[in-house]
Computed example of a mutant assay.
Amino acid sequence: MKYSTIFFDLDDTILDTQQNSKDAISEIYTDYKYDNYFPTFDDFYTRYQSVNLHLWDLYEQNLIGKDHLMSERFSKTLEGYTDITKEQSLDINQDFMGRVSSRKNIINGAKEILDYLQPRYNMYVLSNGFQEVQDKKIHNAGVGHYFKKVILSDQVGKNKPHPIIFDYALQQAGVSKADCIMIGDNINTDIIGAKNSGMDQVWFNPKKVADSNGISPSYTIESLDELRCIL
């Protein structure tokens, strides 16, 4: 085998975080009676997504911190509709994260491919998520036993695609970059980060998004089962 070690992104590569988050946001919309401000859940969810994705983009570029992201995503979503304090925004965010972490949806075929890969490779999670959430999500989804270790940007102090987190992951695994491959759905954080660190990459691209940056990943797949042809 060419590789000894696999680094897996977690959110929307193993866990169906997009669906889990949408389900949790739907509960927030109902329980907090945000239909008083937004005529439909889709209106609320679209606005939340726009705010949240922008904040995550800033966070992954190390332009804002974790606390800023958590305090701003609901206050910005509700801005212009109703005023909430920073403390209230943090309380809503805490409630939201608790709901998300309890969800168990995983990507189609994830457990099957992990069963296939586990006897053949040392596998690690390499994620930009927050430790208090990711640990619970991994436990509740029942996938923790597949991985030697969970490596989070929260612990390292730098987010993917920064080379420091990839160097840290290599040190934790005790391997060289030539022995590793990174699998993830985010071309900017997972694929560019791994590529710039000299590591081969698999871009998990189920939505068939165009490679507008001209990155040309080592491999591109649309389903996790296609990893059987690579690994």
Rank of each mutant, 00 (worst) to 15 (best):
K2V: 12
Y3G: 05
S4V: 01
T5Q: 02
I6E: 02
I6F: 11
L10Q: 01
L10T: 00
T13Y: 09
L15H: 00
D16I: 10
T17C: 07
Q18R: 13
Q19C: 11
Q19I: 12
N20S: 12
A24R: 01
I28M: 13
Y34E: 01
N36E: 14
Y45F: 15
Y48P: 00
Q49D: 03
N52G: 01
W56N: 10
Y59F: 15
E60V: 10
N62C: 11
F74T: 01
Y81W: 01
D83H: 02
D83L: 04
I84S: 04
L90N: 06
I92H: 04
Q94G: 15
M97P: 03
R99P: 03
E112I: 12
L117E: 07
M123S: 06
S127C: 02
Q131L: 10
D135Q: 15
K137Q: 14
H139T: 14
K149W: 02
V150P: 06
K160M: 08
H162P: 06
H162S: 14
P163F: 01
P163D: 03
I165P: 01
L170S: 08
Q172N: 07
A173G: 04
G174M: 06
G174I: 09
V175Q: 00
K177Q: 10
D179G: 00
D185F: 07
D185P: 09
N186P: 04
N188A: 12
T189Y: 07
D190S: 08
D190H: 11
I192A: 13
G193M: 03
G193V: 05
K195I: 11
S197I: 05
S197F: 05
D200Q: 03
S216R: 14
S216D: 15
S216C: 14
P217E: 10
Y219D: 00
E222Y: 06
S223K: 13
